[in-house]
Every structure is written in C-alpha cells, then in structure tokens.
Amino acid sequence: MTNVTFALPDRTVRRLQKRAAELGRRKGVISEMVDAALTSYLDQAESAARNETFSAVNEGRAVASAGSLAELARKLRAMNVDARSVLIVSSEPVEPVVHLGMGSKLR
C-alpha cells in the first residue's frame, strides 16, 4: 500500500465522510471507497483505449488484418481471398470457458 496525497473538492470530501459514517467509520473505509471508485474509472478508461484488431489467418499466418470485421472483409475481397478459406480471429484473448447465464434454458 502507498500513501498518496491529493486535493479533493470540499463537496466530494463531505460525501465521502457521510458515506464512511453510514458504513460505520471503520479504519480504512475511505481508502476502500477511493480505491473502488478509481479502479472503476481506470477500467473504463482502459476499455475505451483498447484497440482490438481482427485478422484472417491461413495455416497460422495472418493474411490480412484490420480494425473491424467490415474493414477486414473489404480487404479480403480486394485480395480475392475467399473468407471461408481463412480463420477470422480477434486480437482479444478468447475465454477458454464461456458461462451461459440464466438465459440458457436447457430442457
């Protein structure tokens, strides 16, 4: 853990203190709230900055890449590559297991 010093508007400090009081004013509760808020903000900012790319792969080699599937499709057509002959993949890692939630109604 690192101690950080920064300035906050009075109104924000009052809201933090009010919430800390509601949570019982236990030691570290304000740090927890600040950590939760900053983590959420940073997750969102990093998500927005994510630059996903899509590639058409043939025998392990990328034939073409683009920032969107539409753009990749245009490139393949321009190259006269049959899209069915390549595997379209994303730069984002594929989850090995996908959880199907409450919408799955197997009978």
Binding site: R84, V98, H99, G101, S104
Partner: peptide
C-alpha cells in the same frame, strides 16, 4: 450471466452463413 458476446440458435448461425466459415470451439457452462 453470459460472459460471451452473442449467442444464437443453430438456425440463426446457419442463416448467417457461419456454418460455412472456419470456426473455433470453446466450452460453455450452463
């Protein structure tokens, strides 16, 4: 509760021509 992108019934997958495309397989947990 579904942490994928989009799930569709098999007939929709076929209507999209995705059964003609090269695809990957992954495990789903219901």
């Amino acid at each position: 509760g579904f942490d994928g992108f989009l799930a569709v019934p098999g007939f929709a997958f076929s209507e999209l021509g995705m059964d003609q495309m090269q695809s990957t397989t992954t495990d789903g947990v219901t």
